[in-house]
Nucleic acid binder design. Structure first.
Lengths: 300, 300
DNA sequence: TAAAAATACTCCATAGGTATTTTAT
DNA sequence: ATAAAATACCTATGGAGTATTTTTA
């Protein structure tokens, strides 16, 4: 009969790939963990890991079991949180994920507002691209994430906080800088500068510039807006910048001009997502309010 | 620390409402089960049941925990099934749900076909309305259900098997019986006879007869097509019958006429649904094939 | 008063610890 | 030869059994 102990140990083993380190993180000795893994393999009727000299390597079956294990442990985690959820709103520690194109501009104000309204709240933040945030969220490593919505994931629930418009940033004096309102159709593939692959804002920008064939883009991608702005200032092309970033004052270079697109101006929806049936839904809805206030504050 | 043992016992307690009977079903003594429930309550920090003279009554918190518990146990059940899933297709016992408006006409042929193609398969069937089938499916009591799709449930995956057309059944000689092709708009609320509330086919029939205000319907509802047909034969009104039922030969009364609607004739989609990430997806897709064959056989 | 659950206690299965051996590179 | 996991063996926690008491309608 399968036990949660087996699953907890196996989850750590899958994460570390090493019996000894998994045991250490579980707070037990290596043989204790080994025995539970063996018993889990017996219960499931197949090997979960391949024992190699460097440690443990998941079998294909093990990968499948590890994923299910994470979901089960996340559900148990939520069940345990259910008891505590009946305390004050946003009082329990919050493990928050946030995408890189938002984090530097929203987090400072968000944390200020949170500290003001919910002084007891302790927030730990992970910054990463949407894909890995969603994975961590579903796997129970995070409680909620701030990202561009919708995420199209049936296991998640989400609520929009505010709209973030895209603005065109071009070298001062060029035709794009004079254009008003800017037309996304006029941007060509060889002048558009974007963040590297994986950033949702890259895909969104390409969505805005429908005429561009993604394969014709320059192959490199920047890792930050600052880099992009430096490239634009040096005359290497144009880029799209979310209003959120602009309002945070990251454009302070006379060599670049910022142009608003014609209405309806392209924008993305920023908001909060969490696991369906998380007992902390009340917390997360309150968080949406904070994000909205932080976003509005930046936009003001 | 929460254990599956606690959850398994609590699930039985929630189902029986009685410590003694839950213990019996768990195969342990009453004190053993009681202690696990107490320890679960301690872990969750609140009472799950109210101890009354007649047994145990779930608290509001307990109801919430019971629902989560069922989901967790279903996920664990699926995990355990993962090991066995690598046997032959449709070889493990199948707990199948099926709606009443389909069961009597499809099941005989379906079971014949299954016995022919998968002699090792053991099927246990539960017949009930969609709502309770879905609940049982999500809770892990059933492996798959045959129902009218789509079910609009994010936790389920589904595949259509075949279309089942609606036919009009009217007393022979009346205007409806002469009408060809039949017009759903000509049916009035006081002559339409339907199954009782909860049967999906009732809602589907009302969907077909858009002009009818459901509140103006006769308040009673029949519990079977046979009853409906008797009523129609006796001249009490008309009803809609799925082609599946007709082909099973349940209309053998000269006093009633069956009329096909004009193209595009109204129909419902029948198919199979199962829990997302069930390891037996391969089984269920094979089942869809059987259902399709059984449905086509009836339609021939 | 009767049915049901909690408590008291006893026992044993098993999880986990330490020490050691086996395995793989 | 070395790191890692399995095995052997011992201990102790706690899950489960029986007997009994307490609770509640």
């Amino acid at each position: 009969m399968i036990s949660l102990k087996q699953l907890r140990y196996f989850d750590l083993l899958a994460a570390t790939g090493h019996f000894g380190r998994a045991a250490e993180r579980a707070g037990v000795t290596q043989p204790a963990l080994s025995m539970q893994i063996v018993s889990l393999e017996r219960d499931l009727g197949a090997a979960l890991v391949e024992r190699v000299a460097s440690g443990a390597r998941l079998t294909a079956f093990g990968v499948e079991v590890a994923e299910r294990t994470r979901r089960i442990l996340a559900a148990v985690h939520d069940l345990e949180a259910l008891g505590q959820a009946r305390g004050a709103v946003l009082s329990a520690p919050l493990r928050l994920g946030i995408i890189p194109s938002v984090a530097p501009f929203l987090l400072p104000r968000l944390l200020d507002i949170a500290a003001r309204d919910y002084p007891a709240l302790r927030v730990s933040v992970r910054e990463s691209i949407t894909e890995s945030l969603v994975e961590a969220l579903v796997g129970g490593e995070l409680d909620a994430i701030i990202a561009s919505l919708p995420l199209h994931n049936a296991e998640l629930e989400e609520e929009a906080a505010f709209q973030d418009a895209f603005l065109l940033v071009a070298p001062a004096g060029t035709r794009h800088a004079r254009q008003s309102p800017a037309l996304a159709e006029l941007i060509s593939a060889d002048e558009l500068l974007l963040l590297e692959d994986g950033h949702c804002i890259r895909d969104q920008a390409l969505e805005v510039c429908r005429a561009i064939d993604p394969r014709r883009l320059r192959s490199f991608g920047a890792t930050s807006f600052s880099t992009l702005l430096q490239l634009v200032a040096a005359g290497h092309g144009v880029t799209l910048l979310p209003e959120l970033a602009l309002n945070a004052g990251i454009v302070a270079d006379e060599r670049v001009a910022v142009v608003r697109f014609a209405a309806p101006d392209p924008s993305r929806t920023l908001g909060v997502a969490w696991r369906r049936r998380s007992p902390r839904e009340r917390d997360f809805r309150a968080l949406v309010g904070l994000v909205r206030e932080a976003g509005a504050g930046e936009a003001a």
